[in-house]
């Protein structure tokens, strides 16, 4: 039987990793011009924030953090459904989802 203590990594490492993943998602939002890929990068950022939540929940032994992650996941699912519906609607009228070409809302 393996000792469980061998598998424990201090949560601070998870928080550092979540910071790195968040910044990678942020770079994706800034660099990509395709609306679907920007959306995926936002999902990456949401997931890194969730990872930080779970890491802090572990280090404070507080289950509220995990429940909050559950709610964030639900809201992310809602956001993806509505967001992708918007992308489909935009693609139908403009024939493109490249955000550089969507300047019809310019003043």
């Amino acid at each position: 039987m393996l000792d469980q203590a061998n598998f424990l990594v201090p949560p601070i490492y998870y928080v550092a990793l979540s910071g790195i993943l968040f910044i990678l998602g942020m770079v994706g939002v800034l660099l990509r011009r395709n609306a679907i890929l920007i959306f995926m990068s936002v999902e990456l950022m949401l997931n890194s924030a969730n990872l930080a939540f779970v890491a802090f929940a572990r280090s404070f032994l507080d289950v509220n953090g995990q429940v909050f992650v559950f709610f964030v996941m639900t809201v992310a699912a809602v956001e993806v459904a509505v967001g992708l519906a918007l992308i489909v609607a935009i693609f139908r009228t403009r024939r493109s989802i490249d955000i550089d070409e969507l300047h019809s809302m310019e003043g």
């Binding site: 990594v9 990872l51 995990q66 992650v69 996941m73 992708l84």
Partner: peptide, 27 residues
């Protein structure tokens, strides 16, 4: 997998079914 390492097995399963399953299939 990180969730499993952080004592959150329930969230790990929700992550796989909701995110890797439903949301990515939608994408």
């Amino acid at each position: 997998l990180f969730y499993l390492g952080l004592n959150a097995p329930f969230l790990a399963m929700v992550q796989i079914t909701v995110y890797a399953g439903a949301i990515m299939v939608l994408f």
